[in-house]
Amino acid sequence: MTLKVRVIPCLDVKDGRVVKGVQFLALRDAGDPVEQAQAYDAAGADELMFLDITASHEGRRPIHEVIARTAEVCFMPLSVGGGVRTVADARALLLSGADKVSINTAAVENPDLLAACADAFGSQAVVAAVDAKQVESGRWNIFTYGGRKDTGIDAVEYARLAVEKGAGEILLTSMDRDGAKNGYDTVLLKAVSGAVTVPVIASGGAGSTDHMVDAVKSGGADAVLAASIFHFGEIGIGEAKQALAAAHLPVRLT
């Protein structure tokens, strides 16, 4: 009767291979992103996120082939981020089979890139990735270059601007919580989700299914993203959904 909370596993891909991928399944090739994508597809993931952490961004990158091969076998929404700097970069990823392109540093430096991409592909294909770190109580700044550079830009203000420019979704990562497994930053989530009209994906800090419930209930997130806890099998996709359902949140049970 209603839109479901999405559970989204994220795979880090470097040079076409998964880094720190699924380790709880006996996969033929644990480094193959496509096998991992299929495992998550079968497990009932609502969407998949590929984060390309390949250093060089020149020419046709292995990530294109990864997406194309995944799109052949997984009939589910695919997002991809990492190294998107131009409309041409975004187009190449979408043509490979991605449904959404997540843009981080390049959009912070030039928010008009979001507008150009939304004009070319529609807002539904444009995700603004926001890496935020708390600098004082109730204030988070955007950090770029993988969290190394403090831009001094207010994360909530930027999220608002990104949506104004045409982003159809916000991928909000708490740099403070990322990898810490002590829960999503629900205060940050609440601040951003309350400030924008588009869906917000919670990222950074997932350590338990309770954290996912909190991200939605306290943080107002529309989707929860996690990487390592899924890859290591600490939490299954189905288990996450059962927990959300038990907390009376709408989920898609497959």
Binding site: L3, K4, P199
Partner: peptide, 11 residues
Amino acid sequence: ALKVPHMGWND
């Protein structure tokens, strides 16, 4: 409070 785009799975 409902978001637009209507994005995700719905029955």
